[in-house]
Write a protein that binds this DNA or RNA. Structure first.
Lengths: 350, 350
DNA sequence: TGCCGCATTTGGAACGATCCAAATTTTCCG
DNA sequence: CGGAAAATTTGGATCGTTCCAAATGCGGCA
């Protein structure tokens, strides 16, 4: 049976031109809404476009015009709800500006990051939004993407220095001030023995958050004990396992500023296992305001960075850079907001 | 100082060819690792490529070869952790196969879905992985993408019928069997009055899950009361608000099979407000195994679909389709697994 | 020396769009 | 009606790569 198949070879400008007796150039003008073409010609061409089911070949156009209509978004961890929201925001803003998003995930591995960037750059994105993998270095990223493509760094700093000709914009969260807000809030609740829990010292965001915590304690003239600074991987399981170290020495803290929400959740688990009720016997705060923060028992006091808005902002910053390649480098720090919930209770003794 | 600026115009094959005195064609052969070129020539060319910092222009190559190296991934809701994990899995498998992921989010709007598909298709993806927005119809999607590009439908069915020439593969979850497993588990725990809570009847996944619930009840010769079937939007707030309907008539259920985890979380909230302790006075189960399911109090018994593995599977199915365009349409149903946690307690009276 | 076969290299056309300068048609006005 | 100005259309070159048929160089052998 020789039933007509609707899957035919690709329709191009030439087919349309032939179909309605004009030249390629005219069809091209119609496609781009040029005011040059005659109304009646335009109507004829548009009819033919519809009839033949033409689809524009943006790759060919980009090749000829030396332009690009894509932006690469390279994330260290898409499965993290914070970055998923961020990605949704980026895509939203890019789509609105007529760009498409090329996605790449690095799973926190600098090697994969390098490979992903090398692969994406071959597709000629107009720019790159990069949330670096932990341990990724400026030299490495520069080698992969070259100096032609503008990069916007999100959330983390790169190790090592960039040569001065690579002026990369960045968008970071106000980690320091955020942690300070959380700590001040706990102090205001009446706590005097406050620990900082989770994260690794070699992560820039962890250092910054810890610094904010120290700021607040010093401003309130409160002291810290060495056992009140516990490092662990920023995951629930690790945090749950590390809980014991907090209570290794006397006096134990009555409140804990956690590196992030995941760590805080793990700590809740760990506290429960020790027979301590989080939000009752021990106060705690997180960072990120992931969805479960509002839901867990007790609901978690945390800092929200509004990741979707940050995604839109990152996209807008990069688009702005494309518009003005020569403008001065921008290093934006987005403020974060304290969301007070049940977990940051006053100390039990009061 | 006339320090060389690393930002120059784009380096092409011609630059390399000129730089080491061979022809374009030879350089092209080197790039594609052709065995035709002489060893010494290859070495010379590769040196020059390195020296000039050449980057391959895949778009130009794709244009010439009539190929594509991208796959579009269109999701109804990237902010949902389930889809974020799925996307990470898709990207992982595509990257391994040398493809890049073009991302598109539709925010559950068929209109945006149409727009997103129309935009992405202009970039000429080799195929599309689509998790349709609620209410999206086959005709609409077909109009946007045409019949030339293979589509893999994930998770949901499209409204309306596809013409037979558009043979689209699909990957769905075994909603029916999953809900049946959950219901059987509750029956095994001793429950006799079991409700089905949440979701909309016009959603295919909700119908399927409800069917599995009915299967289990009928197999156990248990009856259902009309008030034990409550519809609500699949969000926490709506579910919390709808809780009262479950207890509108006597006798009230002792266990509840929820449409998904979000609904289950909302129900927990609603129960708490009524002074009922979920996982104690009322047993419940969810669906999806989102991250908070393991964390909430009580931890939620639910069904896991292993979204990252599903993402890899979806990508592999589509890649397989690209390899064999003529192969028979595949409609795969991925099994789901029951994860038993504290929320599915025995009835209080036992 | 001349010819063959093998290994290697090459120039021109092509992919599907856009740019541009020039050609063609239409409109307007004396 | 003629001719200039305006409006519209057009063919050829081009973007960076790959394909292809043909050219080149070289060693071996009669």
């Amino acid at each position: 049976m020789d039933r007509a198949t609707p899957i035919r070879r690709k329709i191009t400008l030439v087919d349309i031109a032939a179909g309605c007796g004009v030249s390629r150039a005219t069809v091209s003008l119609v496609l781009r809404n040029s005011p040059l073409v005659n109304k009646r010609t335009r109507a004829r061409v548009e009819e033919e476009l519809r009839k033949q089911g033409y689809v524009y070949n943006r790759a060919a156009a980009n090749l000829r015009r030396q332009t690009s209509s894509s932006i690469a978004l390279v994330l260290n961890d898409l499965a993290n709800p914070f970055f998923a929201e961020f990605a949704a925001g980026v895509d939203e803003a890019l789509a609105a500006a007529g760009f498409v998003t090329l996605l790449g995930c690095t799973s926190e591995s600098p090697q994969r990051e390098q490979a992903v960037l090398e692969s994406l750059i071959e597709h000629g994105p107009a720019g790159i939004i990069l949330s670096p993998a932990e341990g990724s270095s400026a030299a490495q990223v520069l080698a992969a993407v070259g100096a032609r493509t503008p990069v916007l760094l999100f959330n983390r700093e790169l190790g090592g220095d960039l040569p001065e000709y690579a002026h990369w914009d960045s968008l970071a969260l106000d980690n320091r001030h955020g942690a300070q807000l959380a700590t001040e809030h706990l102090i205001a609740q009446g706590h005097r023995r406050i620990a900082f829990f989770g994260g690794h010292k070699d992560s820039s965001s962890c250092r910054q958050r810890h610094a904010g915590y120290v700021d607040a304690l010093q401003a309130a003239k409160l002291s810290m004990a060495p056992s009140w600074r516990v490092e662990c991987a920023p995951t629930r399981v690790d945090a749950a396992a590390a809980t014991a170290s907090l209570f290794a020495a006397e006096p134990a803290p009555t409140a804990v500023v956690c590196y992030n929400d995941a760590v805080a959740m793990g700590l809740m688990l760990g506290l429960n296992r020790r027979g301590l009720r989080p939000g009752h016997d021990v106060a705690l705060t997180g960072f990120d305001d992931i969805a479960e923060a509002a839901l867990c028992m007790p609901a978690l006091t945390t800092l929200t960075a509004m990741p979707r808005a940050r995604g839109r902002q990152a996209a807008d910053m990069l688009l702005q850079r494309l518009r003005e390649p020569g403008a001065e480098t921008r290093r934006t720090i987005a403020s974060v907001q304290l969301v007070t919930r049940a977990s940051s209770c006053p100390p039990p003794s009061i």
